[in-house]
Design a protein around this nucleic acid. Structure first.
Lengths: 338, 338
DNA sequence: GGATGATCTGGGAGCGCTCTCAGATTTGCC
DNA sequence: GGCAAATCTGAGAGCGCTCCCAGATCATCC
């Protein structure tokens, strides 16, 4: 079943059917209806490969999530929410979503080669600007349209991205703890090659330095995983007493919670704890976790819309979107807003 | 840059380049090397749309995850692990993975029409055989190649699938609890239109009936989410005392844990608790959760390999793969194997 | 009524590949 | 050496669509 078949049944030409399918003007309304009826009846949809071949458009976007540092999905609930947003955004505009979860360089090369160069995808969402594994000159020079969901470490002037104000968010967390009277505040960072992690540390450090309370001994490097949160907390406890900790992700806060429990420190009485993300688990933990809520799913959704606007020429050049975050105060810092 | 360009540079014909690219025999080894060198140098990869158009093959598989009952990714860590397996399996055989996370019927129709009929995908993994939203005669009659990762509710004789022996797994859980001396054992089911949930209930019921201890009052219907686990546990507690509970997923076990805590019941002293899945969180909870480990990622991986074998004609007709599960005993049933 | 423009329709070319077929060259063997 | 088979190569057709151009039809206005 192809255009020609429909045309024959409708007593018109291939071209006319094509015009109807693509909703172009200059088709007699009677003819249009007749063709549409047959298209409907036959359940006809144009062959995407043929269309792709001539238009050089695939109606497909890619989402790339590198898996170098951590096993993406075991580590955190962050990526699933993001994927949901991307999928919604793409579906809304009738694009399909191609998923790439790569680890090896070989995977990456295949991805570049087979998929990007040949326009199997019209554009790409990169879900972790961590390192230059994906976001590098080689990619950018292909002219590929790319949107990242973090502030890129490099090429920030050439790349479009959607992110949150991590610096301000971290400041909010610290100021909340300061307002509670906490003075020895620790921080478990995310993976430090990640821009989000860097910005959260910068915000943390800045806010404490402003009041002369920054102590580098109370900062431990994590990598966003629960496990690393546990280890980071242990490390901080070894270095000196703390009365509060800001973890750069909820997953790490859960790990920290475990470590504090094992050290027989009460949360929030002895140590107040703030996370980041507001994952579903955060409000279910014991104690329920104070955290910075960031609109993860919306980030994916808006990044996708931005990407499609760039693809379709509705927007130009690098665009940056900064979304707001929100401090959600729960039991782990001593207040229960419910 | 296309076949013809490469051919010109190599002083051969389009056909010969095509043969080299596709690794076909009957090409002089000298010629092959020369062509290969130029392909390499130019970074040439054949246009997938053109190839797709003539071969009717896309080198793309789809993963469909319906989102009717629950918001897939917020509810459970199950799907991410599955996706990882699927992605690995596809990548290994040089296939791309198209992701479909649909909610509405309209989404579904678009999916059927645009994507399936026109072979934008060569085959499909259905990640929740729940209801007939996706797996229905309309789909099967298109001749689409489908593999599900649950035992299908209907058409089980026509569909290939990869699953675990949920009945036996549930029996294992119950027998473990019985061996610990527990006698009043409750169950929080998964979403009851899901075959996994049905089989787990069947196994639970069967094992208890065998020893004359089955009590329907102690069964509450959940839907795999943490929230529903919490509510299910509340409901069971209202109906009568229990000394053990088997939850059909870890997520629900976490919810149940919360409810038990609020009821001032100790786990495992007052109530022993068994989950299902062995998610990463299970071993991090307090107390660490006894659970049935099922190889989720491997399920996705094997389903994908099976799908590709079916697509490529290496295997025939409906194939079923049943993977083993494993009872992992931890603190929540009173033993700590570590 | 005829020139002008807007509206509508069909045919041809071509996107970049694979596949079939036929022809050219080499090899094997009596 | 000669004949058959195996090996190698190129040209042509065609996958199903879009896009361009040319021609046909219709309405508009002096």
């Amino acid at each position: 079943m192809n255009l020609e078949d429909i045309a024959r049944r409708a007593g018109v030409s291939r071209s006319t059917v094509s015009r109807v399918i693509n909703n172009e003007p200059y088709v007699n309304s009677k003819t249009r209806e007749r063709v549409l009826a047959i298209v409907e009846a036959e359940g006809f949809t144009p062959n995407p490969a043929a269309r792709m071949l001539v238009t050089q458009r695939a109606q497909v976007i890619g989402v790339a999530i590198p898996r170098t540092l951590t096993s993406v999905f075991e580590a955190t609930d962050y990526f699933p929410a993001l994927l949901q947003g991307v999928s919604d955004g793409a579906q809304e505009r009738d694009y399909a979503t191609l998923l790439w979860l790569g680890h090896s360089d070989q995977d990456r090369d295949r991805f570049y080669g087979r998929i990007l160069r040949n326009r199997l995808m019209d554009g790409l969402i990169i879900a972790s600007a961590t390192s230059d594994l994906l976001l590098n000159p080689r990619l950018l020079n292909t002219g590929a349209i790319v949107v990242t969901v973090e502030r890129p470490l490099a090429y920030a002037d050439r790349v479009s991205y959607v992110t949150v104000d991590n610096i301000k968010a971290a400041e909010d967390a610290v100021n909340h703890l300061l307002n509670l009277g906490r003075r020895r505040i620790g921080h478990i960072t995310g993976a430090m090659d990640n821009p989000d992690a860097q910005d959260r540390l910068a915000g943390f450090q800045g806010a404490l330095q402003q009041v002369g309370l920054f102590n580098p001994d109370l900062v431990a490097e994590g990598m966003f995983t629960t496990q690393s949160g546990y280890l980071g907390m242990m490390q901080i406890l070894k270095r000196g007493p703390v009365d509060a900790v800001f973890a750069a992700s909820d997953s790490m806060a859960f790990g920290a919670l475990q470590a504090l429990r094992e050290a027989h420190l009460r949360v929030p009485q002895d140590v107040a704890l703030v996370g980041f993300d507001d994952l579903p688990h955060a409000s279910e933990a014991t104690p329920r976790l104070t955290t910075i809520r960031q609109p993860i799913q919306q980030k994916g959704y808006l990044a996708t819309r931005l990407l499609l606007d760039l693809i379709e020429g509705k927007l130009e050049g690098p665009q940056q979107i900064i979304l707001p975050t929100q401090l959600v105060i729960r039991e782990s810092t001593g207040f229960d807003v419910l």
